[in-house]
Design a protein around this nucleic acid. Sequence first.
DNA 1: CCAATTGTTATTTA
DNA 2: ATAAATAACAATTG
Length: 273
Amino acid sequence: MPELAEVEFYRQQWDPGLGRRVRSVLVHPRARVFRGCAVRALVDELAGATLRTSAAAAKQMLFRFSGGRWLGLHLGMSGELRMETADRAPQKHDHLVLVQRECRLVFSDPRMFGRVSFAVGSEPPGWWTRLAPPILSDAFSIEAVAAFLHRRARAPIKAVLLMQERFPGIGNWMADEILWRAAVHPARPSGSLKPGEVRAVWRNCRRVCRCALAAIAGRGGRVPPALNANIPDSWLFNHRWEDGGRCPRTGAPLARGVIGGRTTCWSPARQKL
DNA sequence: CCAATTGTTATTTA
DNA sequence: ATAAATAACAATTG
């Protein structure tokens, strides 16, 4: 599930643990989410460390602890972060639990497409610093987008929007939302977009990221009651899975199909091939 | 039993 | 050789 704004939402779930010491670490060490991770070192090094800061970028999260310890988390398809009371025992899919005095910080992921990583050092790990420039940064320029679409000219625009090396944090629903707003059919070859359409895609990448962060991750620490409770019905988001769903702008029926290997929803009335 | 799922990556195909 | 398409990963739900 988690894309850019959901990842930021889940990052905030661990905020109650900031500035507090980790007393012990509970893991399911054989779980797939630990592939490539030194679980033993993670458990030994995080026990006794204090959670200092956290950050989210793209679909990644990075938690910095005292002593130059870094915990990286990716939520995959079904991951989530929760804060639980101190006495609550880990559930079946709770692969990593940081036990603090007042609460427990839980990473849970039933399908285990997510990932845990751990590193020690004075600088953030390379996988973090090498992430593509954020869509809401100046580096995400229309020129960079146009060049990227040109290089992937034969691939459907829907598939290209899912490429994290240029569109960090965009996932299936955000890609559909962007193309719907830009009035571009998801199956269009990227190289066939006219300059005005490239501009519309670029602009709506930024707009959807900004609006999704405001609606899902909240502002100034105000956390929404439920993950997607604040998404307006004027978005495609609330209609894309409805049976007989209709385009909020035209009222015409929505279409669904597999494009770029992913289930895709679009409004044929707005988005023409 | 079959098909579906808001992600990523290795492998195969063109 | 490169880019695009496909399969695979795992668990759960309808």
